[in-house]
Design a protein around this nucleic acid. Structure first.
Lengths: 156, 156
DNA sequence: GACATAGGGGATAAATTTATCCCCGGGCCA
DNA sequence: TGGCCCGGGGATAAATTTATCCCCTATGTC
């Protein structure tokens, strides 16, 4: 803390103050929605929140393939977009809970439909994806856990 | 044609034979669906096809913000994923028509829902997006055109 | 020849998104 | 002092996605 700090410098090009160079396309509802859901883990995050898995550490356990960092980033984007809310409990160790806003909840039918569609077409899709020479490996882990959890909740 | 061609060389790292390095996450339906719809113009393309706008040149006119190249690439991905089909008419000048497969049609409720949700929340979303310091400009053009076209069709 | 039509796609650059690493806070406990 | 807990986030590298450019097919027309 004895280093000579000057005022914070906002260098462009770093994550701090990164600025889109290509205009965001927001003409039709489709693009707006796409923008909101755009992020590898966003749909899964919303799904988790809707199932009452709301603390960062729980979410992390649920999605071992995602890095902590990326989840934080995507959660923050969802928050900035008004889809989720963050509640910080002033405790130690810290406790944080995310939850869907009303707008966020109104997205859930879409998330659910995506879930259903994907599961209904899993055989077909897995087959087709295997044909793709770009895809050499796939990973499965997340939702097994999730479903386990859900079942547990239903039973408990 | 008199150049001395050798056998085609498949260099890795170029678009030809580009190979994913990060395993595709396909555990729950959500991720599968996300994968299928993942592409800036894919939802819009499906939407267009569902409205009977099926020839590449029509689509291109409809989406002036998208480059021809990118649309071709995303159409091919949709085709590879079994979501759309391509019919080539052996004529000159060439004629091509894309259309949704049955599986593709089954996605339409989701696309429609995204459209509806985005439009219903447009005010809110535009407001929130404006707060985002990353976003300095947005572009609106595509769906105006689309709706115009649709109206034309309805009237005609 | 030059250009238009209608469609494809390679090479490569630029932009954006994910992943990796590592440090911070601040009690509590051994 | 060192480590655990539970969260946050900067820097930077790697991966992936989009954008740009430009050439090709083949026929018809000015």
């Amino acid at each position: 803390m004895s280093n000579s700090y000057t005022m914070p410098i906002f260098v462009s090009g770093t994550e701090l103050m990164y600025e889109r160079k290509i205009p965001l396309t927001i003409d039709c509802g489709l693009h707006l929605t796409r923008e909101v859901l755009n992020g590898k883990w966003k749909p899964a995050l919303l799904n988790a929140l809707s199932m009452d898995i709301k603390r960062p550490s729980e979410i992390l356990r649920l999605m071992p393939d995602a890095s902590r960092r990326v989840l934080n980033v995507q959660l923050k984007e969802l928050e900035n977009h008004g889809i989720i809310e963050k509640k910080i409990y002033p405790q130690l160790p810290p406790k944080v809970e995310y939850s869907l806003t009303e707008v966020g909840w109104s997205l859930m039918p879409i998330i659910d439909a995506m879930n259903v569609w994907g599961d209904a077409n899993r055989n077909f899709l897995e087959e087709v994806i295997k044909q793709d020479p770009k895809i050499v490996q796939t990973s499965k882990s997340v939702c097994q856990n999730l479903q386990q959890l859900v079942v547990d909740r239903k039973i408990g």
